[in-house]
Design a binder for these strands. Sequence first.
DNA 1: GCCGTTTTCGGCCCGACTGTTTTCAGTCG
Length: 551
Amino acid sequence: MPPITNAEIAAALFSHADLLELAGESPFRARAYRAAAESIRDWPEPVASVAGAAGLRTIPGVGEGIAAAVTDLVSSGSHQPFDDLAAAIPPSLAGILTLPGIGAKTAMKLHRELGIADLADLERAAIDGRIRAAKGLGARTEVTVLAGLDALKERTGRMPIGSALPAARAFASAIRALLPDMRVEIAGSVRRYCETAADLDIVVESRDHPGTIGRIVAAPAIGRVISQGYDALRVALQSGIEADIFLATPERFGTVLVRATGPAVHLERIGPLPDHAPDEPAVYAAAGLPWIPPELRLGGPEFTRTAEIPALIRIEDIRGELHCHSTWSDGAAPIGGMAAAARDRGYRFLAITDHSGGLGVANGLDVARLTAQRAEINAESGDPVLLAGSEVEVDRDGALNFDDPTLAALSIVVASLHTGLRQPRDELMARVERVLRNPNVDIIAHPSGRLIERRSPGDFDWPRYFAIAAETGTALEINADPARLDLKPAHAEAAVAAGCLLTINCDAHHPGGFANMEYGIAVARQAWVQRDAVINTWETSRLLAWLASRG
DNA sequence: GCCGTTTTCGGCCCGACTGTTTTCAGTCG
């Protein structure tokens, strides 16, 4: 029997966490299992080969209890307390917890009173109108369930780029360490900065394919080999992520890299690829084309708009960020720490925009704390220039958390809708219009409210949204958090075409959060955005003048 | 169940909204 992989251990812990939640155990206990599961899934080496409980406990989130469970799972594939709970509550029931509005209590009620054990049972019950038979549940719950099931069916099951790209980089580094003199490049949808990826693709330079494959399969990050050919290999990593590895001789590395990067619609437009091109520019040159950056390979506009490519925004154009958080609200670092991180990136300005009081869970600021914070911001060094701001919560009626004099006293105001995103279109649009028409509001953050693969965007009337934003001069954000990527490329392109200004921000909650800028830049480039439309590429003086000209 | 050095217990996200009640439990961000 092959040793259990990190992904399999993590799956057992995740499943137990769900069952603990259903069983009504302490939510902190369930959370502890999930935290340990994530740590183990992402551990760079096989946890099965980590020796002893003491070794296991060096993994963050793994303590005495979970180390014992993992030891059992490694030695026998099972752990008695897990099996006992799974016998009492069907693990498939956890599937219905993914529906918005259905929590552990409701799930158990549905199980006990209606015999529901999985999503399919629940769907039938909702369609038949049987959910209302359960005490405390009504017709509205049936609607919620059916809407949730619809949203679930739209999920792709792919991993977000924010997980896929770091995983690809880590795996590519591991291969480079085994093959120090060979080129190793990430390819596929990850290289193209697609918002989700099904798997990883890696191209490895090789002069001796059997020998190269022999060295790669020894990588500790690999959980098992799925299939193996002469010049290709498909593996499942310890994390459960699957990866295709393509071998290429130096003479045809470019050909293989272009093909492995795709997508098919782009390759079709290029036509037959040369058999032997050592690098990508040679492939494109053979087709009479300039080299096309991977994120622009979409199968259409990159062939007709080649002249625009050099003018597209680049990450070096970004001069600062206009949306970040500190320990004053839900950030992990004090203002000075965030400023230092921005300084390290060469930024000239940084807006501190902690949450307003309306978002209680995020330790939002009231007016008194906002005033105190402004004093702290003003006491900072001035490199980068700090702007005292706020991420102000928009209430369900479109009112902002702070009154106009308070907003006017801030250097920058970022408005956000975090709640009520499922309102009908006319209510949502009325809220947004009220916010856009407030002259104190400079930026709308993550305009659609979507969370990729987790929450659908609000049902906004986008042409109208962009028309009003263009009229009021309010900048719309491309939120670079890979869980959001909001605006998405099509909307960012439409916004600029309508005359809107944009800003690309990481919404950083800790100093490392600024590293997400590359994702936001990729979105902007996919939207064919040029630098000048993005206000945080502007010189500090121009940005300050723009802010001063507003409310 | 995990964590930490103002630790070996007490905290860990907590307040608003929703749908169902008839005064509130459950869910979510």
